[in-house]
């Protein structure tokens, strides 16, 4: 009996892993394709694209495409710009949007419900539909810098950051998550005289690892993949981000190997960021000792 049970468990474990691996293959194959293609010359890349060789580092393998990509475009500048703009936006966004979410869920104040409904309505607006009016606006906004007041935000980092710090979706993410947190805890803390800041910092934030991570990765993806907006507001190469940089590779005859190399390179920061956050996703509420 015991042996059969053990066998069963072993078998079940194997099935589980088999399922996990099968699904993993489905999710990862285009990316393996991308990575392997980046090592091949164009001619071979296209010949391989229809069969299993597409996933194997076979044939004429080299890093030539990577070298060529750096020749063609200032890849490092693009990645730096994207990481900078994305990083600042994500940080500010988490701060402001979680604070707003906190205020919407835990604090009672005048105008709360109306404003929340209005905010949710903005979720719906695809950015493209407001891009032109927004462009006309930012082209004439003032800015106070070290050298006094200047007009117009074009060709800067701020024009790529400030309009995107707050958005309805991120606020909404926090609102929905905070609703699941034990409200009595907050009330109890208030009764004991804790300040709002203390409650936010000491009680809510430690409980909200998963949602901060989710909001961060979502914002990161949106910002890192920006194309239309930076295209419209950066005329100087020095401010361009990675997705605008991708266009450098689509000449009349596309250099597919270089495209794949560039894509592989610009995917690294996002993947790194996700892996860094991964732990936070599973930071269980139980581990903090709070029970719902």
């Amino acid at each position: 009996m015991a042996m059969i049970a053990a066998d069963n468990r072993g078998l079940r474990l194997v099935t589980r892993y088999a399922v996990l691996v099968l699904i993993a293959i489905i999710f990862v194959f285009p990316l393996v394709f991308m990575l392997m293609s980046s090592l091949k010359p164009d001619q071979q890349l296209l010949q391989d694209s229809g069969n299993l060789r597409a996933f194997l580092p076979v044939g004429d393998i080299s890093l030539q495409n990577y070298t060529d990509a750096f020749q063609r475009a200032p890849v490092a500048t693009f990645v730096f710009n994207s990481v900078l703009v994305t990083g600042i936006t994500v940080a500010l966004s988490l701060l402001l949007c979680s604070a707003a979410g906190f205020a919407f869920v835990f604090v009672r104040w005048k105008g709360r419900d109306t404003l929340l409904a209005l905010l949710l309505a903005t979720l719906i607006l695809p950015f493209e539909t407001i891009a032109i009016p927004l462009l006309m606006m930012v082209a004439h906004l003032p800015w106070v810098g070290f050298d006094g007041v200047s007009w117009g935000w074009l060709n800067s980092y701020r024009v790529q950051i400030i309009p995107f710090i707050a958005d309805g979706l991120t606020v909404f993410l926090f609102v929905q998550y905070f609703k699941d947190l034990p409200g009595e805890l907050i009330e109890a803390a208030r009764v004991e005289g804790a300040s709002w800041w203390q409650i936010y910092r000491r009680i809510v934030m430690p409980l909200s690892g998963p949602i901060f991570a989710t909001a961060a990765i979502l914002k990161f993806l949106v910002m890192y993949n920006q194309y239309l907006w930076p295209l419209m507001v950066t005329q100087e190469e020095g401010y361009r981000p990675v997705m605008v940089g991708l266009q450098y590779f689509f000449q009349l005859n596309v250099a597919w190997g270089e495209v794949m190399a560039y894509l592989s390179m610009i995917t690294v920061p996002v993947l790194a960021f996700y892996l860094y956050l991964q732990k936070a996703f599973i930071a269980s509420i139980a581990s903090t000792g709070v029970k719902g």
Binding site: I132, G152, V233
Partner: peptide
């Protein structure tokens, strides 16, 4: 000189014109 990728050039000019730049 300021160079633009060809695929994005026309959009860049139109945006530049709208922004008066």
């Amino acid at each position: 000189l300021q160079s633009f990728p060809q695929a994005a050039y026309n959009d860049s000019v139109v945006a530049g014109a709208l922004a008066g730049n």
